[in-house]
Amino acid sequence: MIDRMEKEVDMLVRHLQVLRLVIANEPIGIVRMSNETGYEHHKVRYSLRVLEEEGLIEPTSQGATTTDQTSGFVGELDTKTTEISEQLDSMRLENTGENVQ
């Protein structure tokens, strides 16, 4: 179970790194993203597909670009990651036998 969670987090990190590149360099193509991140082309392509399905990017003939939904997602990202981090911290403290209030 923990291995699966670690893989999911790694994949999410990759998706967010690809999104950051699109935001900073739009339009940007797979080859450049692969070169800048070190991820294989098929992994970048998968991340782009996930981001497109989420409505955060769209493909163009020049490369990936952001959408109207991107800025809202980025605005909420810090809040959501903080909430998740707090949940994980709570799990860690519960496992050590400390009471969390």
Rank of each mutant, 00 (worst) to 15 (best):
M1A: 12
M1C: 05
I2G: 03
D3F: 11
D3N: 10
R4L: 15
M5A: 12
E6I: 15
V9S: 04
V9W: 11
D10K: 14
M11H: 11
R14D: 07
H15F: 03
L16C: 12
Q17M: 08
Q17D: 13
Q17A: 05
Q17C: 00
L19R: 00
R20V: 00
L21W: 07
V22Y: 09
V22L: 06
N25H: 14
N25D: 12
N25R: 14
N25P: 02
P27T: 08
G29F: 10
R32N: 02
E36N: 12
E36R: 13
T37V: 05
G38M: 04
E40Y: 00
E40A: 13
H41V: 01
H41K: 05
H41Y: 02
H42N: 07
K43Y: 09
K43N: 09
Y46C: 02
Y46P: 01
S47Y: 09
L48G: 11
L48V: 09
R49C: 02
V50Y: 07
V50I: 15
E52N: 11
E53Y: 02
E54Q: 08
E54V: 00
E58D: 01
Q62R: 15
A64E: 06
D68S: 14
D68I: 04
D68F: 03
Q69W: 07
T70F: 12
T70N: 08
S71Q: 15
S71D: 14
G72A: 06
G72S: 13
E76L: 09
E76R: 06
K80W: 13
K80P: 01
I84W: 13
S85T: 09
Q87W: 05
L88Q: 02
D89P: 00
S90I: 00
S90K: 10
M91D: 09
L93T: 15
E94F: 10
E94I: 07
E94M: 10
N95R: 09
G97P: 07
G97T: 03
E98P: 05
E98K: 11
